[in-house]
């Protein structure tokens, strides 16, 4: 599903150039669950942003479903993103002014799904995430675990092929963290490809493969299953 080869990303300030990704290469197959680990500043989040088509690489190749997407403009990236990729963030990134239902509904609005169909899809995913009873609450009224469940619901409501999770349990206690991990496992088992950035060895163990990074490069790759 994903092939990256010699991927490069630099950050420049007036005097210093920092290398965030240094000729990084790996593949992810459809249905895989890959964890990416490494110390702060090793380039994990940069990688995730590029994989999520939120950012552009400065060099190398990025094939998504057999198509080179490295040079895509914002409009094309946005189009590809909204139909194929779901995001889960450490800080949930729910919109405070929208209710649970409305937050989850948002991706469907932007992909042009009709209202009746939207309602059906959102309710189905809320049921699945077991937060249907909170549908009219605002994010501030929920616990962290519940908020992340809403975020996951929002990430999957479009049935994306790929979910990118950036430390999804980072802001949660272990019980809530485990619950979120269980959700991701379920999704993966249902066929969704997952790439997760994490600091937690515990969470990483849920994945099929762990890629460890340092200074923008891949240092090791452990296959768990």
């Amino acid at each position: 599903m994903i092939q990256i080869k010699d991927l490069e990303k630099f950050y420049k300030t007036e005097e210093v150039q920092t290398i965030a990704l240094n000729k990084l290469s790996f593949d992810v197959k459809e249905g895989e669950f890959v964890a990416i680990m490494g110390p702060s500043g090793c380039g994990k989040s940069t990688l995730l942003n590029i994989l999520g088509l939120l950012d552009d690489p400065d060099g190398g190749s990025f094939m998504f479903n057999g198509t080179e997407v490295a040079g895509y403009n914002e409009r094309k990236r946005s189009e590809l993103r909204k139909h194929n990729i779901g995001f889960v963030f450490q800080s949930f990134n729910l919109i405070d002014e929208l209710t649970v239902f409305e937050n989850v509904e948002l991706p469907l609005i932007y992909t042009g799904v009709k209202p009746a169909e939207r309602k059906q899809q959102v309710e189905a995913v809320l049921e699945k995430m077991q937060i249907m009873h909170r549908r009219n609450h605002f994010p501030q009224q929920l616990s962290g675990g519940q908020q992340q469940r809403v975020a996951v619901a929002r990430a999957v409501v479009n049935n994306p092929k790929l979910i990118l999770a950036d430390e999804p349990t980072g802001n949660l206690d272990s019980t809530n963290g485990n619950e979120v991990m269980d959700l991701l496992i379920d999704l993966n088992e249902a066929g969704t490809t997952i790439i997760m950035v994490t600091h937690s060895e515990h969470d990483a163990k849920y994945s099929h493969r762990i890629i460890r990074m340092l200074d923008g490069q891949k240092v090791t790759e452990n296959i768990l299953a």
Binding site: S78, H83, F87, L94, Y110, T111
Partner: peptide, 12 residues
Amino acid sequence: REIGMRKTLGAN
């Protein structure tokens, strides 16, 4: 954050 999230979710 709202702007970013909306863009991430596909808003043009």
